[in-house]
Computed example of a mutant assay.
Amino acid sequence: MSIRTATEADWPAIWPFWRDVVEAGDTYAYPLGATAEQARGWWFDGSHVVVVEEDGAVVGSAKMGPNRPGRGSHVGTASFMVDAAARGRGVGRRLGEHVVQWHRDQGFAAIQFNAVVETNAVAVRLWEDLGFGIVGTVPAAFDSATHGRVGLHVMHLDLG
């Protein structure tokens, strides 16, 4: 398993799992029914994007960068997606570890995840294992396809 900077040429490999994750309706608030071109624009929005390759296939991706511009740019953020066929093999953990180190290397003071769906237990557990804490939960802020309206955790990791 290796991680490298993504290029636009990786989008055809990312798109199928990006679409599947979003259309499942349980972890991301992107609009349902997005076209590949719309989704590509959201994923490659000026953020630093990486892919995880395993045996020559792209099995996951993350995007990262400042959480806010200007005076908030010392705090980073990231988003992650893993192909369903590759889940349970440590892809998300490798991406998470990479993202934390990338933010450290870039001189960020902290990382803030703005919207971790509280029912996404695998992600919440992973981020807590990597040192993130829940600093608050916005009640009923996400309309989960499976669970109805659930909270969104704001999670934070101090890199100091």
Rank of each mutant, 00 (worst) to 15 (best):
residue 6 A to E: 06
residue 7 T to S: 15
residue 7 T to C: 08
residue 10 D to R: 09
residue 11 W to K: 00
residue 13 A to V: 07
residue 13 A to W: 09
residue 15 W to S: 10
residue 17 F to V: 02
residue 18 W to D: 09
residue 21 V to I: 12
residue 24 A to V: 04
residue 25 G to V: 00
residue 26 D to R: 13
residue 27 T to M: 01
residue 32 L to N: 14
residue 33 G to L: 01
residue 37 E to Y: 02
residue 40 R to D: 03
residue 42 W to I: 05
residue 43 W to I: 03
residue 43 W to S: 08
residue 44 F to A: 09
residue 52 V to Q: 07
residue 56 G to S: 06
residue 58 V to F: 11
residue 58 V to I: 14
residue 60 G to A: 08
residue 61 S to K: 07
residue 63 K to P: 10
residue 65 G to C: 02
residue 66 P to K: 06
residue 67 N to Y: 15
residue 68 R to V: 08
residue 75 V to S: 02
residue 75 V to H: 04
residue 75 V to R: 14
residue 76 G to E: 11
residue 76 G to I: 07
residue 77 T to D: 13
residue 79 S to N: 13
residue 83 D to E: 14
residue 83 D to L: 07
residue 87 R to F: 10
residue 87 R to P: 03
residue 88 G to C: 08
residue 90 G to I: 12
residue 92 G to S: 01
residue 94 R to Q: 15
residue 96 G to Y: 06
residue 96 G to D: 00
residue 97 E to F: 03
residue 97 E to L: 14
residue 99 V to D: 01
residue 100 V to S: 00
residue 100 V to I: 14
residue 101 Q to D: 12
residue 104 R to V: 05
residue 105 D to I: 06
residue 106 Q to C: 09
residue 107 G to H: 12
residue 108 F to G: 13
residue 109 A to E: 14
residue 111 I to R: 02
residue 112 Q to N: 13
residue 115 A to I: 04
residue 116 V to M: 09
residue 118 E to G: 03
residue 124 V to Q: 00
residue 126 L to T: 00
residue 127 W to M: 01
residue 127 W to E: 02
residue 128 E to D: 06
residue 129 D to N: 15
residue 135 V to H: 04
residue 137 T to N: 11
residue 138 V to E: 12
residue 139 P to A: 11
residue 142 F to S: 04
residue 143 D to G: 07
residue 143 D to Y: 06
residue 146 T to N: 12
residue 148 G to S: 02
residue 149 R to T: 04
residue 152 L to H: 03
residue 152 L to G: 00
residue 153 H to D: 12
residue 154 V to K: 13
residue 154 V to C: 10
residue 155 M to K: 00
residue 157 L to Q: 06
residue 160 G to R: 11
